[in-house]
Simulated scan of single mutants.
Amino acid sequence: MNQRHATAASHAADPRSESHSAVSAFALWLFLIMCVLLTTRVSADEALQNEKAWSALNHDQMASMLRQSLDEYGIVPSVVDQTSSQFAVDLGQQGLDPMDAFVSSIAGLNDAVKTILDLSSADPIAAAASIDPSAPHYAEIESLPKPIRMTVRTWLGRSLVRGRLYDEALPVIAEVDASETIDPASSLFYRAACYHALLMKKEALADLRQLLENEDDCPVRFSRLAKMMVADIKPLKEDSLDEIARLMTDVSRRLELGRSDDKVEGQEQKIIDKLTKLIDKLEEQQQQQQQQQQQSSGGAGGSQGGQETPMDDSRIAGANGNGNVKKKDLDQDPGWGNLPPAERKEALQKISRDLPTHYRDAIEAYFRKRAVQN
């Protein structure tokens, strides 16, 4: 008994025992802090994952956005009540498109928006020009509250995209903040449609991916088309035959719209340059293959068994001519370079015979449009 007491007393008096206890307590305290920090970080990560870049608004939220915007714009309360009530009726009983109803409500209170509304059906290009900073009504439009500006731009951009006026639509809708409109899905979808049509791959994929991040709130028609556009433009490579065919389709679209301006000529020159580059690349590959075949065959340039081999392309054959060639005066022949219709058709068939149907149709449509323009 006395020995056990003595041993306990010695441990109690030993400073190493106290140090070991302190280290254990510190380790436990550190472990608890790490657990708390880890739990907090996981919760924050989950919150970020659950946070959506955009969300669809129901009719009540749309009406609330309209009311708040009108209040900010300084409309008298009685008119705000009347406009908001009519907007709710248009969405509910009338079943109107939310953006159509929203823009119509604002047009009754703002002359610049009314001008855009009237021009959109009569002259959509002029309507798009009214958003330009040099336009007379631009300052008046920019003075509107942000939700109104963003929704009006989205509405006009949608109208232009539906008319395949992508060049005019993009400046209108490019800077739209989707979260500040009554229809964020439309803002993202129609802007992505512009980028897709104009072969702006990076920008198109960014908007399409953001749209599909919240597929649950996205209209089915948008989500299906968005997935198709992603699959269509993602594999697009610069200077490929696919890109050339798309450029030809774009030129055909512009010609159908009656365009024959510098933009069209620039696109045509781009097509020619890319085709030339592609042909040069293919010829280079063919030459490399021929050289490899010659090397693999041992470069048989002599005779075997008394039989002579054909003359190499690199050797100059004997000739008796003096080498003078009569120059052809091409300027005197107005039809030079133009094939008769039958031969032209045959040439086009040979050019596009081995191409996939998508490329062949685009090339043939392109040359048909050019023939009509000439």
Results as ranks from 00 to 15, higher is better:
K345D: 13
P133H: 10
V172T: 10
A12E: 11
L144G: 06
P147F: 08
T40N: 11
D313S: 12
W29Y: 07
Q293Y: 02
K201E: 07
M1F: 08
R153F: 08
W54M: 06
F189A: 11
L255I: 12
A135G: 10
Q292F: 06
T83N: 04
P310T: 10
E51G: 03
S43H: 09
V103I: 15
Q294Y: 06
V36W: 03
T115A: 10
A185L: 02
L38S: 12
L109T: 03
R153E: 06
S143A: 15
S121C: 01
Q294R: 12
L212H: 07
D97P: 01
P340W: 03
P356A: 05
P356L: 02
D60C: 03
G163I: 00
N374A: 15
D60P: 02
T309Y: 11
V152Y: 11
K202Y: 03
A197V: 00
I125N: 08
R315N: 09
P356M: 04
I75K: 11
K326R: 14
E142C: 06
S55D: 01
V23F: 08
A135R: 05
D183F: 08
R344C: 15
D242W: 01
T181Y: 03
S134R: 12
D90I: 00
A128Q: 10
M311E: 13
V161N: 07
A107R: 04
A226R: 08
G157M: 08
G108T: 06
S296D: 15
Q93T: 13
K202W: 00
S240G: 07
K281T: 13
D90E: 09
A122P: 01
D239W: 06
